[in-house]
Design a protein around this nucleic acid. Structure first.
Length: 422
RNA sequence: GUGAGUGUAGCUCAGGCGGUAGAGCACCGGGUUGUGGCCCCGGUUGUCGAGGGUUCAAGUCCCUUCACUCACCCCA
């Protein structure tokens, strides 16, 4: 047997209804907020990701599906969407008509990580990006959009964390302050953190090793090192969020793994997700568009981890499965033909209808109707029945229970009186 | 890449000390019921993850391997 590739998964009937529901609701909401959908390809030139995400990041260093195609080009299955959306924004000069542009996209991403709960090698994201706005209200509105989606989906137990990472002016100064703080604590840091100290000391805030956590208790806080503009920006974002009535927690230890983020960053954490508890994350990336060869336009965006979001809603999956409304049971060959016509006619009226093709026992057919939770089962018979009157009586009582098809179908035990055309 | 746990019917799982497989659910047929959801009777289903070894004999012991799960790491 050929099995699926490690870290990949099939999304099966039973779950797809929930996926569709989430996607439909998201599309509707994004539309209401003025976002337009873009669909960039899943394959890009490798360089795009090296330049945007950062050549030193884990994603680019060891997690990308990269290969050389027959033309000798290095291509990569996208590990995230922002880079592609920015590329498209620049390439098609979407800023020309109006530099302010709100875009969203939805689809699979690929990273070759060790699979575990909430982490797959092909995973799905919904991404939203806003270009052309420096205003902190843009950050806040984007977060508001994200939390509104969580609310409409009735996602249980989520918490919003926000932070500011500063800009090119103040972040380097903070990094230095952090490094000198860590000078005296070399002995307490794990080997990973010692490496991080040189490259990206901010990441040490993330470490879960007990001694590292201890060492960081008195560490300087980024918020105390922000320049005036960044501090004001962060304050305004928080005030705007309060204005929207969104509860959040300012978390000065929140950092991001992608190099392009500046100023505002945020994360939505889901309880009950285990170690991979980030349902959504995002932030501002004011230098990215320019760095990729576009105009000097700012950006803010987020990505929702759909697989994790759906995990949080999984108990309700069954509710969104599409089932036939009506199951038509037929006894005998002639009844089968009539039933077949009926089923087609009903479908033509957008009623989900089903039947058995084999001439099986009534019991078997009823059992199947039941299993499908068809709200209604009709009997169309041309076979001699012991007590046709009883069948008819039974049907009539059911019709009263469950209205939708009254008048559409008229049936008697023993033979159909009116066909689909009548 | 590192570590731990698990791999027996479609699903959930039993299978002391080795003697070549079982239950419940599901599925199929029948009975009963006001010719459907309850109940009763009967039936089908397994390369016991894969490969090798020890043994007269291995699901059960040993080795290897693969997969899954969770955690580290990283991130959504």
């Amino acid at each position: 047997m050929i099995r699926l590739v490690r870290g990949f998964k099939d999304i099966l009937p039973g779950e797809t209804g929930l996926w569709q529901h989430v996607e439909e609701l998201a599309r509707e909401l994004f539309g209401q907020f003025g976002f337009a959908e873009v669909r960039p390809p899943m394959l890009e030139q490798t360089e795009l990701f090296a330049r945007s995400i950062g050549a030193d990041t884990d994603i680019v260093e060891k997690e990308m599906y990269t290969f050389t195609d027959q033309g000798g080009k290095s291509l990569t299955m996208r590990p995230e969407a922002t880079a592609s959306v920015v590329r498209a924004y620049i390439e098609h000069k979407l800023y020309a008509k109006d530099p302010v542009r709100k875009l969203y996209t939805l689809g699979p991403m690929f990273r070759r990580e060790r699979p575990q709960k909430g982490r797959y090698r092909q995973f799905y994201q919904i991404n939203a990006e806003v270009f052309g706005l420096h205003d902190p209200k843009a950050d806040a509105e984007l977060v508001f959009l994200l939390m509104t989606l969580m609310n409409r989906l009735e996602v249980p137990g989520v918490a919003l964390h926000i932070n500011s990472l500063g800009c090119n002016a103040c972040r380097p100064r903070f990094k230095e302050a952090l490094r000198s703080f860590l000078e005296g604590r070399t002995g307490q840091l794990c080997s990973d953190c010692l490496k991080r100290r040189g490259r990206n000391p901010l990441r040490i805030f993330d470490c879960k090793v007990a001694t590292c956590k201890e060492a960081m208790v008195d560490a300087p806080s980024i918020v105390d090192h922000l320049c005036e503009e960044c501090r004001n920006h962060f304050d305004m974002v928080q005030r705007a969020l309060e204005g929207f009535g969104i509860p959040f927690e300012a978390d000065h230890r929140l950092v991001r793994g992608l190099d392009y983020y500046t100023r505002t960053t945020f994360e939505v954490l889901g309880q009950s997700l285990g170690a991979q508890d980030a349902v959504a994350g995002g932030g501002r990336y004011d230098g990215l568009v320019k760095a990729l060869g576009g105009p000097d336009q700012p950006g803010v965006g987020f990505a929702i981890g759909l697989d994790r979001l759906i995990d949080l809603l999984a108990e309700r999956a069954d509710r969104f499965e599409k089932r036939p409304h009506l199951f038509i049971a037929a006894l005998g060959a002639r009844a089968q033909e009539s039933a077949f016509r009926w089923v087609q006619a009903l479908r033509g009226q957008k009623i989900r209808a089903e039947m058995d093709f084999e001439d099986r026992s009534l019991k078997a057919q009823m059992r199947r109707a039941n299993k499908l939770e068809a709200s209604y089962a009709l009997i169309v018979g041309d076979r001699e029945l012991d007590d046709g009157a009883a069948v008819l009586r039974d049907l009539e009582t059911k019709q009263q229970d469950q209205v939708p098809l009254q008048g559409l179908v008229e049936v008697v035990a023993g033979r159909i009186r009116s066909g689909p055309e009548s």
